[in-house]
């Protein structure tokens, strides 16, 4: 029983991280129609930047975090201006391919600038090795922080999108470009801000994931990204709440499957292998997609311009 609760807890933690990523993916998809396969690379870029700040100039942890979040905002702005803007009117697949290309470029640049990140390196945080014990529960300090930060972030984000003028403008742009334009919303500026916001979310998720894994390399976000995408699609790709729920679902499924499959084997095949787990999640995802083509929580079809 306790083991199950423990698994559910860690499912919640991974799930909230997937949810955070899915949120950024959906935000960008909804407002600019870009299926952003470079989202993982964006997260990795900011996280790698933080790693360099921590290991190179040995800045204090929080200062380094602050700088890398600023870096993330800048990165988002640069990517939007240099790459997303010229492709705004292109078909969805073209944009998706472009993000795959962007991911390659970002990874190449990181490797060129910081060759040490080509192979896995230790990602140092002040929380490593500390843990909380609540009754029989075991919660590492990192995980506790992840829960706290993602929960806070989701609340703040929700308030931002619902209450502030900027947030409302963003949602209006997501709902209909032309209408937003007619309402006098500076659509171009909104695109820029959405990419910056999404890049910020990516950076936070990336840093938290790195802190949990304690080991990173330039591609450390790749396996995570697919699961986040699955979460986003399950959420319907068009609703922010859906994205978070979808992400949570994937995280829970992953951890429960890990518990169920651990130690079992089928002939020579070790069922505890992450590959098997991923395969099962993916199979379930496809099945759900077939049963509900618009995702579990998805609404009507998204019509983009």
């Amino acid at each position: 029983m306790l083991a199950l609760l423990q698994v559910l807890l860690s499912g919640l933690i991974t799930g909230s991280l997937y949810g955070l990523l899915a949120l950024g993916i959906v935000l960008i998809y909804r407002t600019t129609g870009v299926l952003n396969f470079a989202y993982g690379a964006l997260a990795a870029a900011s996280t790698c930047f933080l790693y360099i700040l921590l290991t190179g100039p040995r800045l204090p942890f929080w200062l380094a975090v602050l700088l890398s979040l600023l870096f993330a905002l800048l990165l988002g702005a640069v990517v939007e201006r240099a790459f997303a803007r010229p492709l705004l009117a292109a078909p969805i697949l073209t944009k998706a391919i472009a993000t795959l290309a962007l991911a390659l470029v970002l990874q190449t640049v990181i490797q060129a600038l910081w060759p040490q990140l080509t192979t896995p390196v230790h990602f140092p945080t002040p929380f490593e090795g500390h843990a909380l014990r609540l009754g029989g529960f075991y919660l590492s300090l990192t995980d506790g922080l992840v829960l706290l930060i993602t929960a806070l972030l989701l609340i703040v984000l929700q308030l931002f999108l619902l209450r502030t003028r900027l947030g409302i403008a963003m949602r209006a742009t997501a709902d209909g470009l032309e209408a937003a334009r007619l309402m006098g919303i500076p659509v171009g500026l909104i695109f820029l801000l959405v990419w910056m916001l999404a890049s910020l979310l990516a950076a936070i998720a990336g840093i938290l994931i790195a802190a949990r894994q304690t080991v990173i390399d330039v591609q450390f976000m790749d396996p995570v990204l697919l699961l986040a995408f699955i979460g986003a699609v399950l959420g319907g790709l068009d609703r922010l709440e859906g994205a978070v729920l979808g992400g949570l679902l994937v995280g829970l499924a992953e951890n429960v499957l890990a518990l169920l499959l651990a130690g079992h084997s089928l002939g020579p095949l070790d069922l505890g292998n992450p590959g098997i787990r991923e395969a099962l999640i993916f199979a379930g995802f496809v099945l759900l997609l077939l049963l509900r083509p618009r995702g579990l929580f998805g609404g009507a079809a998204l019509r983009r311009v």
Binding site: Y29, L35, F37, I92, L93, A96, P223, L226, F229, I230, A232, V233, L237, E278, A279, F282, F285, V286, L289, L290, P293, R294, G295, A301, L302
Partner: peptide, 17 residues
């Protein structure tokens, strides 16, 4: 039966898998 964006994600997922 699935739309463009979903198809792109699902097929890319298939490759990774």
């Amino acid at each position: 039966s699935v739309s463009g964006a979903h198809l792109a994600i699902a097929t890319l997922g298939l490759v990774v898998l």
